[in-house]
Design a binder for these strands. Structure first.
Lengths: 159, 159
DNA sequence: TTCATTTACTTGAAGCTTCAACTAAAACAA
DNA sequence: TTGTTTTAGTTGAAGCTTCAAGTAAATGAA
């Protein structure tokens, strides 16, 4: 039973700051999106990922990977988005196990109308606090952490 | 209605990576803590903040600030921790509006026994992915973002 | 002193997320 | 071919978080 290595000053600062960002940033973006369109940051991201996909559709598994979510969470949320008319579920032609989530016209209109306000909020809440070098450093460091958490995470694919 | 400024490559990388960390890191730490002691990362943090406070107690408002949580969320969680015998609620001598949350001996034992495993997990999941310079850069940049989100956040106090 | 406002906190309900269990199809193995 | 395992997804229940509404004490204003 050896004494564990505790965090040094920078490690503690980095960890506590990341933990705080983690709670405060999504909460602030949720508030903005809730006011603008009665949806959560996660809902927004589901729509955004679909809007950027070829043909505006993706298998549930792939959509789950791109939103870092469990299939269960995604399934519940897609059901909700479907009720709002923003997404539809379709069968996959080649593999009957697969469900394809498809962004509707209405869903596309929604994300197009929400995107500017959301991007402004992301700038106001984090990017505007940083210099260009900070942004580049953060991108590099944050991607290292993502690689550690999941070494074939989709955001690392194009690297 | 002017076109909003979209994100450039680094901004997009930084934002998407942070968003992914945001989902994956707490989930991984939750899993570790759930296995080690059937509690969440948030529960752990409540206990940790109390354990580091003078006298091992804090007013609910102060504890909420130190865990970046709403008072409502904290109140529900303290009720739960109280049922497990880890925390007690006490009256504040000078101000009857204030509730003081006090870590019990049992709560202290719990956090002492969980801390090593938790710190190991934080290292394994993020710190080990970074150089010392990365850690210092992340601490600096992340604190800038925290300051933007809440300019008198407690982690900035000693700065 | 009295009344209005603010601060500190709690509560119950609604909505969201996780978890475990389940279904069904595809891939693999004998 | 038949049985086994893996992959993909759904579901309901339990637990967690947020939201709106409420209580009660302290502060401030007239």
């Amino acid at each position: 039973m050896t004494e564990p290595r505790w965090l040094n000053a920078d490690e503690r600062r980095a960890w506590l700051a990341l933990l705080s960002i983690n709670t405060l940033l999504p909460a602030a973006l949720d508030t903005q999106l809730q006011a603008a369109g009665k949806l959560s940051l996660f809902d927004y991201n589901v729509l955004a990922m679909l809007s950027e996909a070829d043909g505006r559709f993706l298998p549930m598994s792939e959509l789950a990977a791109r939103t870092s979510a469990s299939l269960s969470r995604l399934s519940h949320v897609v059901t909700k988005l479907q009720r709002r008319g923003w997404v539809e579920r379709e069968a996959h032609p080649g593999d009957a196990r697969v469900t394809v989530a498809h962004l509707t016209e209405s869903g596309m209109d929604t994300i197009v109308s929400l995107a500017p306000g959301h991007v402004d909020a992301v700038r106001a809440l984090m990017l505007d606090a940083m210099t260009d070098d900070d942004v580049a450093d953060l991108a590099r460091i944050a991607e290292k952490i993502v690689a550690r958490l999941d070494d074939d995470h989709w955001i690392l694919r194009e690297r």
